[in-house]
């Protein structure tokens, strides 16, 4: 198990998240929008819809289609990213759809599409999780019927120590067994809707990582809820646009 004197590069405790900011209504044109930042990672998300799906042949007569688009702004990282979709961004877009679909009542909107645009403005690891957190809030802000909110966090293993919410310096950890990165998304009642892992780890450690993610997601959920409430208070219970 972990050595007592294990030090995270930024001095956080193993179960300590980075400072989080969350705000809804950041894109006035959108039907719903939100910003979610953790440490130096900043994501914004905007929801357009439900609206009629075009082209028509892509419509599903049983339910609405959730269409997510994850995109990193070219200057969000040190080495400029070439604009446009990549294999990585296409996979993260799909993973985001899978992470969010379980809480959406898509069956209420046959033949429609809900577009979710996620942009990473500044990246310091954990961008897919920040994007999912922002998207989840933006969907709620858009007033789309949901069974709950999805919260997402990356649990990491640095050498043998499990920690939550990796930053870039931790993601690049090379000492000992190196870094294992485990982005996990959960509903507020603890069901897993998204799970990925890269690194080197055993069954028991994965189970422990899931427990840590559960606790971290509870904290993130409270912050997301608070941001949505704040918006309602500011706008006296009603929202427009």
């Amino acid at each position: 198990m972990a050595k007592k004197e294990f030090q995270r590069p930024d001095g956080r405790k193993p179960d300590e998240l980075r400072p989080i900011k969350a705000k809804v209504g950041v894109v006035p044109n959108a039907d719903g929008s939100a910003m979610f930042s953790t440490g130096d990672t900043i994501a914004i998300a905007a929801v357009y819809g439900p609206k009629k799906m075009h082209p028509q042949h892509q419509q599903n007569p049983e339910k609405a289609i959730l269409r997510c688009n994850y995109n990193m702004i070219s200057f969000s990282v040190a080495d400029r990213i070439r604009p446009g979709p990549s294999r990585r961004s296409m996979e993260i877009s799909k993973i985001t759809e899978w992470a969010l679909e379980p809480v959406l009542m898509l069956e209420n909107y046959p033949n429609m599409v809900i577009d979710v645009h996620i942009n990473i403005i500044q990246a310091d690891a954990g961008t897919r999780c920040a994007g999912i957190n922002a998207a989840s809030m933006a969907l709620a802000h858009a007033g789309i019927p949901m069974r709950g909110i999805v919260s997402s966090v990356s649990v990491g293993k640095l050498d043998k120590q499990l920690v939550v919410d990796l930053n870039k310096a931790e993601e690049d950890w090379e000492e000992g067994e190196g870094a294992t990165d485990i982005p996990i998304s959960m509903t507020s009642d603890g069901k897993i809707t998204h799970f990925q892992l890269d690194g080197k780890i055993n069954n028991e450690q994965v189970q422990e990582a899931i427990r840590m993610a559960r606790e971290a997601c509870k904290k993130i959920y409270e912050i997301q809820k608070e941001a949505l409430k704040e918006f309602l208070t500011e706008n006296e219970g009603g929202k427009n646009g």
Partner: peptide, 27 residues
Amino acid sequence: DTIYSMQKGASKEISIEEMEKILKITK
């Protein structure tokens, strides 16, 4: 004994208990 990569595909949620079972089954 060692896991190097994991990926959940498709949108149905799963419980923590199911995930623990899956870890054992794959082993």
